[in-house]
Computed example of a mutant assay.
Amino acid sequence: MSESIGIIAGSGQFPRLVAQDAKAAGYRVVVCAFHGFTDPGLESVADAYETVYLGQFNKVIAYFRGQGVRRLCMAGAIDKPRALELRPDLRAAKIFFSLRGKGDDALLRAIMADLEAEGFTLMQAAELSGSLRCPEGFLTRRKPTPEETADIEFGWPIAETLGHFDIGQCLVVKQGIVAAVECMEGTDATLRRGGELGGEGCVAIKRCKPKQDERVDLPSIGLNTIRLLIDRKFRCLAVDAEKTLFFDRAEALALADKHDFCIVALTDALFERLRGDSAD
């Protein structure tokens, strides 16, 4: 019998892509979905499928254990404002109350520790869908202008510093001024707010938090992200190379090139090179 892989599925297309890639690799796919969060249609890809309410941790553990799952991954987003409405079981309540006042990364780490204490091994979903990782470099035909480069240089270390405080992954910058910082509203709402405040020509920056556990919460962008940025008259997007998931990449890059929009995926080395080029 094939080894079973458990997927704790949030919203978006990521859980479906992970399930498809896992099946293609020969795994038996066991999905645990959440009422009101997980996108419909995922059940058709899974070998076993169960839907629970967010916060029913005991049911999640019992389900995976009953399906013979030993390895788990988390894929997909959980809308944070709606997550505040959950009704946790006793197990979940103990975790939440022990972390009251701490950030969402601390909560995810506590959830993973609880699952590992029950004998499960947590793996990174991107291990099963490695092609989604964003490669390093200037991904569009157009490179950043000197003005955009200056905003990237300004905002890149700020985004890293904010990540140390577990605040958010996204930052909007315009002419050396921070127009918006992501909090619990999510990236899309941050981009809309930043575009309204900054006006045409903003630069968006999205970074992996320095201490972020990459098994559960990598930054992600996709076709809808680029559509939103173009609609709000942004001119450039900078993300972490290899630590960002890029969905519908070919379509997104084609759209960006059509509108002369710039996307760059930075490593530390490329960021330093960008700084050096702008100083010349």
Results as ranks from 00 to 15, higher is better:
residue 121 T to V: 13
residue 172 V to G: 02
residue 43 E to F: 06
residue 78 I to V: 13
residue 28 R to W: 11
residue 72 L to G: 05
residue 215 R to S: 03
residue 252 A to V: 00
residue 117 A to N: 15
residue 78 I to Y: 03
residue 110 A to D: 04
residue 89 D to G: 02
residue 197 L to E: 11
residue 259 H to N: 11
residue 38 T to W: 07
residue 234 F to G: 01
residue 41 G to C: 09
residue 212 Q to Y: 13
residue 260 D to Q: 14
residue 256 A to T: 01
residue 58 N to M: 14
residue 67 Q to L: 06
residue 175 Q to V: 12
residue 52 V to W: 05
residue 151 D to A: 01
residue 29 V to Y: 08
residue 66 G to Y: 05
residue 251 E to H: 03
residue 216 V to M: 06
residue 120 F to I: 13
residue 55 G to F: 02
residue 136 E to G: 13
residue 230 I to D: 01
residue 276 G to C: 02
residue 151 D to L: 03
residue 223 L to V: 00
residue 37 F to P: 05
residue 218 L to F: 10
residue 161 T to K: 05
residue 80 K to F: 13
residue 218 L to N: 03
residue 11 S to Q: 10
residue 1 M to P: 14
residue 222 G to Y: 00
residue 185 E to N: 09
residue 119 G to D: 12
residue 106 A to E: 11
residue 205 I to H: 02
residue 58 N to W: 10
residue 262 C to Q: 01
residue 69 V to S: 05
residue 29 V to F: 06
residue 109 R to N: 15
residue 209 K to R: 15
residue 220 S to G: 08
residue 170 C to Y: 06
residue 263 I to A: 00
residue 276 G to R: 02
residue 195 G to K: 00
residue 111 I to A: 08
residue 97 F to D: 10
residue 48 A to N: 14
residue 129 S to H: 13
residue 154 F to C: 06
residue 189 A to Q: 07
residue 131 S to T: 14
residue 277 D to M: 07
residue 21 D to Q: 14
residue 260 D to T: 13
residue 51 T to H: 06
residue 235 R to M: 04
residue 147 E to I: 02
residue 173 V to N: 09
residue 269 A to H: 09
residue 49 Y to K: 11
residue 78 I to G: 03
residue 154 F to Y: 11
residue 23 K to T: 07
residue 243 K to P: 06
residue 53 Y to F: 12
residue 42 L to I: 11
residue 155 G to I: 05
residue 253 L to K: 04
residue 179 A to R: 12
residue 182 E to I: 03
residue 121 T to E: 04
residue 178 V to F: 15
residue 6 G to W: 05
residue 96 F to L: 13
residue 30 V to E: 02
residue 86 L to W: 07
residue 158 I to E: 05
residue 233 K to W: 14
residue 180 A to Y: 11
residue 258 K to Q: 15
residue 86 L to A: 07
residue 165 F to N: 08
residue 188 D to Q: 11
residue 254 A to Y: 10
residue 261 F to E: 01
residue 204 A to H: 11
residue 195 G to L: 00
residue 279 A to M: 08
residue 136 E to W: 12
residue 177 I to A: 06
residue 65 R to I: 07
residue 247 F to Y: 00
residue 99 L to P: 09
residue 18 V to A: 02
residue 100 R to I: 14
residue 67 Q to V: 12
residue 26 G to F: 11
residue 190 T to M: 04
residue 89 D to E: 05
residue 128 L to V: 08
residue 111 I to H: 04
residue 239 V to Q: 00
residue 201 G to P: 13
residue 97 F to C: 10
residue 128 L to H: 05
residue 42 L to C: 10
residue 226 I to P: 00
residue 60 V to T: 06
residue 167 I to A: 04
residue 36 G to D: 05
residue 14 F to G: 01
residue 178 V to Q: 14
